[in-house]
Design a protein around this nucleic acid. Structure first.
Lengths: 205, 205
DNA sequence: CATTGTGGCTAATGACAATAGCCTTGTCAA
DNA sequence: TTGACAAGGCTATTGTCATTAGCCACAATG
């Protein structure tokens, strides 16, 4: 029996690819083992069962998502905040459509006591918060804005992934308009009545 | 063997309740049969397998969601559009948190050829489009707005359900602010450059 | 009272996750 | 060089679940 040369990282990476191919919910140890040409129980030498594989994919995917968002921001470093917001939104959507299995994994909530998973989510969120900061948002307003933006992006991406946009309208353009509108609303909000009590910790959210 | 008196509708209703209790993804024929005090294969006399149960729950839940949204709008019939938008958002969130299993079912996309499922989704969407119409949105702008609003509401609800809001900030107030901001952005958009080419059919989206 | 269809059932099959325990291979130290 | 040992494969087994096949009882209908 020649060694297959598996490692935990390899198994997780293979699982992520498999999830992109067949869907995160159809990720199965049987299929994963087959992909490596190995018997199912062999996987248990590297990974602690299906749930651990899913968690591993989630953490890895959150890292990749954060990196993709950061790369987009770096490429638009000189652009004005509104444009950077648009770039962020498109990078998010691009990740979700190009890597649907990984993206689905990023949406699963971390267990309350799972610090590593929470940290991965937080690092992806960091990029979003940075862009919002450029729009001059602090305190409660920043929290609201982060919630809303993540909701908007996630909702858009997941509805699109689920085929929920059955309307004859270009999706890219829709996203532009929606994000522009949202950004405009945010900056208007700051000029109004919500002075922002104090800076909230950028917990995963 | 006394008859259990099952019907397809009863089975679906029980499945919806079970989904609310244990989560839509943990909906299982075994648990469903146990809930009715019946052997698993008996369910097949009423329902065409697990996937059909899921679909049935989705269709039923979409109907209930649409009814809940409509009821909220009826109760706020005299309120100004911005307030009605806020009411809509809160009704949506209330449904999602009170009936998480059913709500999760509503998010699953219909199969492309599943007219009944698509119709159920469309009827729920109808309420949303009506409120947007009150804001004076037509054509492409209305399509964009519907996409964005559904994305916003779904994203908010699903992230909250997943425990994604780890920040110390009242969630109800966040939702108010976000929806207000979005509504403001929408009405601003209409006053600007997008005159809306033609009315798009209210397909499920 | 005979018939028939409906709605239960048991039994069997097959996918999958998970655990237990074996056996080989490669490494590292005596 | 060799011997021990850990790592990383494996087979076998168990248990959960969905699904299908086919039986049987009951109740309604004539």
């Amino acid at each position: 029996m020649p060694r297959a040369g598996l490692t935990p990282a390899l198994v997780i990476a293979g699982a992520a690819d498999l999830a992109d191919e067949v869907g995160f919910d159809r990720l199965t140890l049987a299929a994963l083992a087959a992909r490596f040409g190995v018997a199912v129980p062999s996987l248990y030498k590297h990974v602690d069962g299906l749930e651990a594989v899913r968690r591993g994919v989630a953490i890895a995917a959150l890292g990749e998502l954060g990196a993709a968002l950061a790369a987009g921001q770096a490429a638009a470093a000189e652009a004005p905040p509104a444009e950077r917001l648009r770039v962020l939104a498109h990078a998010y959507r691009a990740f979700a459509t190009a890597r649907p299995g990984r993206y689905a994994a990023t949406v699963r909530a971390a267990q309350p006591d799972d610090a590593e998973h929470a940290a991965a989510a937080g690092s992806a969120l960091h990029v979003v918060l940075a862009v919002l900061g450029e729009l001059g948002l602090t305190g409660d307003a920043a929290v609201d804005a982060a919630r809303g933006l993540r909701a908007l992006l996630h909702g858009f991406a997941s509805l699109e992934a689920a085929g929920g946009f059955g309307m004859p309208r270009d999706v890219d353009e829709s996203l532009d308009r929606i994000v522009d509108a949202y950004g405009r609303a945010l900056t208007l909000s700051t000029e109004r009545a919500h002075p922002g009590s104090d800076v909230a910790p950028p917990a995963p959210g």
